[in-house]
Simulated assay, not measured.
Amino acid sequence: MINLADIRLGALRLVRPIDPFLLVITAAIIAVATLMLGSSSPERMNAHLVNVGVGVAVMWAMASQPPQRLHSFALPLYVVGVLLLIGVALFGDVSKGARRWLNLGVMRIQPSELMKIAMPLMLAWYFQKREGSLKVRDFFVATLLLMVPVGLIIKQPDLGTSLLVLGAGFFVIFFAGLSWKLIIPVAVLGTAAIIAIISYESQICAPEVAWPGLHDYQKHRVCTLLDPSSDPLGKGFHTIQSTIAVGSGGLVGKGWRQGTQTHLDFLPERHTDFVLAVISEEFGLAGVLLIVVLYCLLIGRGLMIAANAATLFGRLLAGSITMIFFTYAFVNMGMVAGILPVVGVPLPMVSYGGTALVTLCLGVGILMSVQQHRRRR
């Protein structure tokens, strides 16, 4: 006979790792993604639903693991990730001028995606080992651990992913207690560089001027951000069409599947990097504010989980994972609005893409794992 008590116990075991608040927010964001894909690229709906199913399964599996197990995976995952990045540099497949993929025979993988999770795991593990005895040199060692994979990713070149990995690692170092005395000089230099680029745009953007450490296309992206009309049919096309779509939506938009920029094929990458422009055009300011509120709730919940974590490893990991969502959203929104260069960063869990969706669902699962561990403690 069926024992109702056993069924109830089994159901409780299935749902116990799930944080209800995080689940509702994640479900709402994915629902928005599904709605917008039905407008911008309905032919990809079946693949999207499969990606959602895989992402939810990965999220639950990760939420079911205790943070101690994640702690034991940190160093091996980081080492494997760096070795794979070296493999990409030596033997990787070249596509569209970039060497980002590694062919393993049975599959092609993009190791830089692995580092979005492996990097904060590694640095959280490192600072956990040194809890109570942190010195300045430990922050320099952590910076070196961070810059090795970031440098390999920049060489591919993949500026967008390198910025995300850099951000993920930086937030761990910051939450570990990085002194403002080290942060402020870097911030001042960065601000001065931005002001100089804006002030002397016509001189430094001249074709014969090379920017140290950057490829020509990266320089071109920054220069067309400052003046999109300088290349309206080339690098500036994305920014121009995106800002037109954003501005034409008004307060409440033109309606679902009624966006002219989207459905007359003026808006490029409308189902991936520029899906926010589709939301703005079809649902206006109201739709954009809904997305912003959902991300604020997600980030707020993540920071709350980080603050209440039982260990330093849990606090650093949850804090950095949460700030990864902030970095994704901030860079993508700035890119769509025309205030940041186009660097290929998706809108988290809204832009179409299996790898990014599964990686972010994995991040949500880690937050749930840290929260579940706090309850048990």
Rank of each mutant, 00 (worst) to 15 (best):
L4W: 15
A5P: 00
D6Q: 13
I7F: 13
L9N: 11
P17L: 01
I18L: 15
P20S: 03
V24T: 14
A27P: 01
I30S: 06
L35W: 06
S39W: 03
S40C: 02
E43C: 01
R44F: 14
G55P: 09
W60H: 13
P66F: 01
S72E: 14
S72P: 02
A74T: 11
L75Q: 11
Y78K: 12
V79A: 15
L83M: 15
L84H: 04
V88L: 09
F91D: 10
V94L: 08
K96A: 13
G97Y: 08
R99P: 00
N103S: 12
N103W: 02
Q110C: 03
P111A: 09
P111Q: 05
L114N: 04
L114W: 12
M115R: 05
A118M: 11
M119W: 04
W125L: 02
Y126G: 06
R130E: 08
K135F: 06
L145V: 08
V150P: 04
I153G: 01
K155G: 04
D158S: 04
S162W: 04
L164P: 03
L164H: 06
L166Q: 10
F170S: 14
F171Q: 03
I173T: 13
F174R: 12
I184Q: 02
G190M: 12
I195M: 14
A196H: 02
S199E: 07
C205P: 09
A210D: 15
H215V: 13
D216Y: 11
Y217T: 13
R221S: 08
C223T: 10
C223F: 04
T224C: 07
L225Q: 08
L226H: 08
D227C: 03
D227V: 06
L233I: 00
K235Y: 13
G236Q: 08
F237W: 15
H238D: 11
I240D: 02
A245H: 07
V246C: 04
G247V: 09
G247E: 12
K254D: 02
H263V: 10
D265C: 01
L267R: 07
D273G: 09
D273W: 09
F274P: 09
F274W: 08
F274M: 15
L276Q: 03
L276K: 00
V278L: 06
S280L: 01
E282H: 00
L285M: 14
A286Q: 01
G287T: 08
L290I: 14
V292G: 00
V293K: 00
L294R: 07
Y295I: 06
I299S: 05
I299D: 02
I299H: 05
G300F: 07
R301A: 07
G302L: 05
L303E: 05
A309V: 06
A310Q: 14
T311I: 04
L312R: 15
F313S: 09
R315L: 12
L317M: 11
S320V: 03
S320W: 04
M323F: 11
I324Y: 00
M335C: 11
V336W: 06
A337F: 14
L340R: 10
L340K: 10
G344N: 09
P348A: 07
V350N: 00
G353A: 12
G354T: 13
T355Y: 05
A356T: 12
T359S: 15
L360H: 03
C361A: 15
C361N: 13
G363A: 08
V364C: 05
I366D: 04
I366F: 07
S369K: 07
R375S: 09
R376N: 12
